[in-house]
């Protein structure tokens, strides 16, 4: 499955190995994973909420657009939801292409769109209590370059 939304942790090494094996003919694989920042030790937990149904649709759309736009040999997205602790993996993307420029660009495209077009919301609990993470203007602006 090229797009997965799950509560469970994932094994990045095993995922990248399987993805690479499936991308026959590719000359470049780029991977990225996003982690829960510990914010200097002040963050105790992060809760990720999502919109079941729309999340899968939105991720598939972003995936398909990246593959078409950068002529990728493959792409994958894994994104978790639920309760996460500092330093845990939140999500990963991987792209495969003939050459590295498309693989890098495809991964950046996936990340830019994941930030502000995939229905996830993060709530942090730390020393100052609990608060929803606000979207950043630069995340919205990042879409303009594509």
């Amino acid at each position: 499955m090229s797009v997965r939304v799950q509560a469970e942790p994932f094994d990045m090494g095993a995922e990248v190995e399987a993805f690479t094996a499936s991308a026959a003919g590719a000359g470049a694989v780029v991977t990225f994973s996003g982690l829960v920042r510990d914010e200097g030790g002040t963050l105790s937990s992060m809760e990720i909420e999502h919109y079941p149904g729309m999340t899968e649709r939105a991720l598939q759309k972003i995936h398909d657009e990246a593959v078409a736009r950068f002529s990728l040999d493959g792409a994958m997205i894994i994104h978790r939801y639920g309760a996460l602790r500092p330093n845990e993996q939140i999500m990963m993307v991987a792209t495969a292409a003939r050459h590295r420029a498309d693989a890098f660009a495809g991964a950046e495209f996936l990340m830019d769109y994941l930030k502000s077009r995939a229905p996830f919301w993060k709530k942090e609990t730390g020393a100052d209590g609990t608060s929803w993470v606000a979207a950043k203007d630069e995340d919205e602006a990042a879409l303009d370059r594509w």
Binding site: K115, W121, K122
Partner: peptide
Amino acid sequence: VAFFPPMTGG
């Protein structure tokens, strides 16, 4: 119809 704040994925 769903209402929500700006999304914060990734």
